[in-house]
Design a protein around this nucleic acid. Sequence first.
DNA 1: ATAAGAGTTAAAGTTAACTTTAAGTCAAGT
DNA 2: ACTTGACTTAAAGTTAACTTTAACTCTTAT
Lengths: 157, 157
Amino acid sequence: MQLSQKFLTIGDTAQRSGVATSALRFYESRGLISSVRVAGNHRRYHRAMLRRIAIIRVAQTLGLSLREIAAAFATLPDNRNPTKKDWARLSTTWGKQLDRRIADLENLRSRLSGCIGCGCLSLKNCALYNAGDEAAGLGSGPRYLLGDVPGTGQEPP
Amino acid sequence: MQLSQKFLTIGDTAQRSGVATSALRFYESRGLISSVRVAGNHRRYHRAMLRRIAIIRVAQTLGLSLREIAAAFATLPDNRNPTKKDWARLSTTWGKQLDRRIADLENLRSRLSGCIGCGCLSLKNCALYNAGDEAAGLGSGPRYLLGDVPGTGQEPP
DNA sequence: ATAAGAGTTAAAGTTAACTTTAAGTCAAGT
DNA sequence: ACTTGACTTAAAGTTAACTTTAACTCTTAT
């Protein structure tokens, strides 16, 4: 295996990318990467594909699903291999998403802090319950917790 | 259905907790909640179980798996139903975990920021690669990206 | 010439957290 | 008496992201 080769076998690609051959075939089946075939139907990955594979792993670390990553790649003209500039654009977008996730968690954190000592945890008062399902209202979501406050028997529909 | 009843059918429990009956049976199969049986082999959940169910949902929102939640419940003396004090203890622990997750993400965020413009992304220099697998070293993890820098051919084992 | 090693495909297995389906039981209302 | 609705269980299905297995095919080193 020459390090300067332009095309790599799946085994070499796996070694250099740190991604199992089975995963590479899987990524290919999902359209995330591509290969050419040589005699014997064996795959050959272009060296540049290593960059793409690495970006996939980074994106996964950032919390993106393969579906989302594929969608991101699809925004590249001709679905070309990401250039340095493409990487800058993609990672900027992903950075913003990450910021949002962090903000959401911090929000959740402050809600939890407010609820740690309260012990109420009722649907109406507890910020934790009204966290995920803002528009849920009555009809879904845990109702009364500590205390299990009975209503009037005339709950709204 | 009387709101002041001490024991609820699975249907009533589902309605008041906002959790599907299938999910309740599933939680029970995993030991997260428990019930008594009445004539006809039908389940009855104690009203207090609603609190437990709600805590399960909150814990899930915080990112815990059912396995972890079960483990947390197991720390309660006699695996009793969580009291207000228990909730304070559990949620304090979970708050710390959440803090750690947030810190991890912020760390990742700053690494990403540093890499957005750089375009190097090599194993040795890139903070993003050395993110998850600190001790990975050579042998796993994407190697060379933009640039695909060839080594000496004498890589360490 | 041959055996080992690397590749190939399709299909099944894995884990989490449930949901859906199938087939059957039970109690209550008409 | 009979239908309806709620309930029961076991087993299979769902999604994501892969891995494992089985059964072959090719290439390469000896």
